[in-house]
Design a protein around this nucleic acid. Structure first.
Lengths: 231, 231
DNA sequence: CCAAAAGTGTTGTGAGTACACCCATGC
DNA sequence: GCATGGGTGTACTCACAACACTTTTGG
């Protein structure tokens, strides 16, 4: 059997990527979604998605789709899993590979996203999404919780400089449960991976909270020597 | 834009499934692999795989491919992740969705597998596999370790009746480190999810070890009430 | 009787958790 | 001067880890 004949006559499929994009703003976890512009389900809420092109890796497809649809780029992104039920897309048989992403919401991102018709919605206000997108979101939330537990990915959602109350608030959102203030500080500071800055952020209190910066180099070094991140 | 025109003119792709199939025999974790029968790389070692057919979900494709290639069916199987680099398959651009599976190796399975040209190899003896299959295997091992830690999937690899030394041996293989005999017994028995049988297995000692059975119903019930499996 | 694997308890330690008051400052 | 959120220390509990001897029985 020649190579040509092995790969020939094999059915081909539409392959899409869908992005579950998390952000953190005003103390709330948020999701970026858009109004679908094409039939079927035109006008319904949808994750950001698009088709994998020829000669394009699926990872690159996710990056491209995100940039084209929202103007966002250079962010933390990882594959979630693929969704391959035959009837998941009501318009055609489409196999979709879901990616989840974490971004720092800033005015810049917000403006770009808005210009592209994308919206940040609080996780508690997510409407019915098309197809199996709600399931993708649930799976992504579960993955986010799992990842956050043992990997320092929370910092991908915060500005470069952040306060400990902000950081704790973020993890409370991710885990959906309150965390003790003192124990949280103790644990995160004990890891010795944060750089304490002189500046204070007075935007949320009169006293002001110290700003910190995540020291990735230090984190990498300590990880080499057996440090296990855990929050 | 009509539905037809949205999905038309979108490039289509070959989509494969590849199965990382773990078994446990003679106190060793093993992997089921085959000799590839087609070019390119004919004769090289490969994971069990095949193409997703039209009108077939990817989950079902994995089940079908496994059955057709090895005669094995009705086993624990879960999606790992997809692999979408453009040049991962040297014969054509193929997007592959990897599944990992756990099976109880028995004479029955072994004969079937052999008849289909499949071989069980100890994890320490895995040769170079085609394409990115070694990477898939590594990812699957990592997933297996993660899953085994908090989910009772180890039992999928053991016969219905097993001894505690067998069970401990299995986890030592999965984690690649020795586990304390007493602490292991204490922990697993404390969960109260094993049924102790009267019979003993004398195949590996003169004294004989008690046989146990995993009580899934009890496990499910206890899980409802907050039990967290952990080994 | 002895080799070989199965089975059995206790103790120390470190991490997790619970918990209440003072501090700094803008208004 | 007071309201608001930021910051700090201690004590208890429990799960984990370390560890050595007895039991059973086939040969």
């Amino acid at each position: 059997m020649s190579p040509a004949s092995f790969y020939a006559n094999v059915p081909r499929h539409l392959v899409a990527v869908d992005c579950i994009i998390f952000g953190f703003e005003d103390g709330k976890l948020k999701l970026l979604i858009i109004k679908r512009k094409v039939d079927p389900m035109e006008g319904a809420w949808s994750l950001v998605g698009g088709f994998v092109q020829e000669g394009e890796s699926t990872d690159n497809a996710a990056i491209r789709v995100l940039r084209q649809t929202t103007g966002i780029q250079d962010i933390y992104m990882d594959q979630l899993q693929s969704y391959g039920d035959t009837d998941r897309d009501t318009g055609a048989r489409v196999i979709s590979i879901a990616y989840y992403a974490l971004i720092r919401i800033s005015e810049h991102d917000r403006l770009l996203a808005n210009a592209h018709g994308a919206h940040w919605l609080s996780l508690h206000q997510i409407p019915e999404l098309i197809f199996d997108h709600n399931k993708m979101l649930n799976d992504a939330m579960a993955r986010l919780r799992d990842q956050a537990h043992f990997h320092p990915i929370g910092f991908e959602l915060l500005p470069e400089k952040f306060t400990l109350p902000q950081l704790r608030n973020l993890y409370e959102e991710i885990y959906q449960r309150p965390l003790d203030k003192r124990n949280f500080r103790k644990k995160i500071l004990a890891m010795d991976i944060l750089e304490k800055l002189e500046e204070k952020d007075k935007s949320s209190s009169k006293k002001g909270a110290h700003l910190y910066r995540f020291d990735r180099l230090k984190y990498d070094a300590l990880t080499q020597h057996g440090l296990v991140f855990e929050i």
